[in-house]
Amino acid sequence: MRVTKAQAQANREHIVETASELFRERGFDGVGVADLMAAAGFTHGGFYKHFGSKADLMAEASTCSLAKSLAGAEALDVAGFIDVYVTRAHRDGRSSGCTMA
C-alpha cells in the first residue's frame, strides 16, 4: 500500500517528536535507531526513507524541542520562566524538559 505525501510527512513529524522525547530522556547515545523507530511504531528500515543519518534526526529533533520550549515560554516574563524552569516536575520530566540538558 502506497503512503501519500501527507501521510509520509505526518509519519516524519511523529518520528521527530518521538526522537525529541527519547533523546531528552536517554541522551543521544542512549537511543538506537531500532529502539527509536519501534517507539514511534515504525520499522528500523523505514528510518532511512526519512533521514540520512541519526545525526540528521538529532538536529531536527533538537530544533523541534527548542521551538516548543520557546513557544511555551513566550508568554512568561523572566520570573515566570524561572518559576516553571526550576521545579521538580521540570527536573524529573526529562522527556519533556530542557533540550540543552
Score class of each variant (00 low, 15 high):
residue 29 D to K: 11
residue 29 D to A: 04
residue 30 G to T: 08
residue 30 G to A: 07
residue 30 G to C: 09
residue 30 G to L: 03
residue 31 V to I: 07
residue 32 G to N: 07
residue 32 G to K: 12
residue 34 A to G: 02
residue 35 D to G: 04
residue 35 D to C: 02
residue 36 L to Y: 02
residue 36 L to D: 00
residue 36 L to V: 02
residue 37 M to L: 05
residue 38 A to T: 09
residue 40 A to S: 02
residue 40 A to D: 01
residue 41 G to V: 05
residue 41 G to K: 06
residue 41 G to M: 06
residue 41 G to C: 03
residue 43 T to A: 14
residue 43 T to V: 07
residue 43 T to S: 15
residue 44 H to A: 13
residue 45 G to V: 04
residue 46 G to F: 01
residue 46 G to K: 09
residue 47 F to C: 02
residue 47 F to P: 00
residue 47 F to K: 10
residue 47 F to G: 01
residue 48 Y to S: 10
residue 48 Y to H: 12
residue 49 K to A: 04
residue 49 K to R: 13
residue 50 H to T: 02
residue 50 H to M: 03
residue 52 G to E: 11
residue 53 S to K: 09
residue 54 K to C: 05
residue 55 A to H: 11
residue 56 D to E: 15
residue 56 D to P: 00
residue 57 L to P: 00
residue 57 L to F: 04
residue 58 M to L: 15
residue 58 M to V: 13
residue 59 A to S: 12
residue 59 A to C: 03
residue 59 A to F: 06
residue 61 A to W: 00
residue 61 A to R: 00
residue 62 S to N: 14
residue 62 S to T: 15
residue 63 T to D: 14
residue 64 C to D: 12
residue 64 C to A: 13
residue 65 S to Q: 07
residue 65 S to T: 12
residue 66 L to D: 07
residue 67 A to S: 09
residue 68 K to F: 05
residue 68 K to A: 07
residue 69 S to R: 10
residue 69 S to N: 03
residue 69 S to W: 08
residue 70 L to H: 08
residue 70 L to S: 04
residue 70 L to F: 10
residue 71 A to V: 01
residue 71 A to Y: 05
residue 73 A to L: 10
residue 73 A to F: 05
residue 74 E to A: 15
residue 75 A to C: 08
residue 75 A to Y: 09
residue 75 A to G: 09
residue 75 A to K: 15
residue 75 A to L: 09
residue 76 L to A: 09
residue 76 L to M: 14
residue 76 L to V: 01
residue 76 L to D: 11
residue 78 V to S: 12
residue 78 V to F: 13
residue 79 A to C: 09
residue 80 G to A: 13
residue 81 F to S: 03
residue 81 F to D: 01
residue 84 V to E: 15
residue 84 V to C: 08
residue 85 Y to D: 06
residue 85 Y to R: 06
residue 87 T to D: 04
residue 90 H to E: 13
residue 91 R to I: 11
residue 91 R to D: 11
residue 91 R to G: 05
residue 91 R to E: 14
residue 91 R to M: 14
residue 92 D to W: 11
residue 93 G to S: 15
residue 94 R to Y: 03
residue 94 R to Q: 10
residue 94 R to I: 02
residue 95 S to E: 12
residue 95 S to N: 09
residue 95 S to I: 07
residue 97 G to W: 06
residue 97 G to Y: 06
residue 97 G to A: 12
